[in-house]
Design a protein around this nucleic acid. Sequence first.
DNA 1: TATTGTTATACTCTATAACTATA
DNA 2: TATAGTTATAGAGTATAACAATA
Lengths: 132, 132
Amino acid sequence: MNTVDALVQLSFQVQRILAAVGAEHDLSIIQIRLLGILRDRQPGMLELGQHLGLDKSSITGLVSRAEKRGLVRRTPSPHDGRGVLVALTPAGRRLAEDGEMQITRRITELTKALNATQRKQFTQLASVLVNP
Amino acid sequence: MNTVDALVQLSFQVQRILAAVGAEHDLSIIQIRLLGILRDRQPGMLELGQHLGLDKSSITGLVSRAEKRGLVRRTPSPHDGRGVLVALTPAGRRLAEDGEMQITRRITELTKALNATQRKQFTQLASVLVNP
DNA sequence: TATTGTTATACTCTATAACTATA
DNA sequence: TATAGTTATAGAGTATAACAATA
């Protein structure tokens, strides 16, 4: 298999795992990413849009759906009367942690096809690609 | 960076490239995959659903939107009066080839961060992950 | 005036359930 | 009856444009 095909297929395989783990909790990949970002931040809507690469109007709906499920909370920004800060609720944090654990488990399972040396090598090379 | 993070981030990076190339032609990732599958097949709707992991009702819409743009064509199955076969139009084939070339170019660009030996190594390891 | 966020609108993508036509 | 496909419906996700409130 050539490099391009390997990368593309590997990408879809990882995305399938993310979607499957999400589906177990009725979460889409974008909702998983949302919860993941909020684990160590309380960003505003625009900042969230930057992180996710989405328009602010898309963020409104995304956050509203998560809010309706009790996973996140909007609070008025203390420094800017126009802004809101988005934070995880305790339920959202539990879900984020749970999901991350399962993703780690499933992806780790995938890499079991490699031995320790190969895995280390792969990780090093993939890190270069991600962070060139 | 650990193995799981490297894999997940690499996956998103590849998906961003696919989405960007698609966007240049007003194609979503799923539409790109549809055209890609049809390059060497004329499957029925159910078979298409198997390939894409989608319900037949989702395929109906997907194919209809591509058909409306003149990228694919439905023809009655010669062997089964209930079935249809989906095939690329010439315009669809041009777009599929064009898109694949650009994807190859962009992904290859990404791997320029590795030297030839590393790239070969990476490809071999990624192939194992994809095809364990 | 500029910025933050929401709303209105429109479209793609997806699934479930009900349907039609053929096997 | 069973299968191939479509339709009706509902909902998530996305962007653009217009808007309100605040800076």
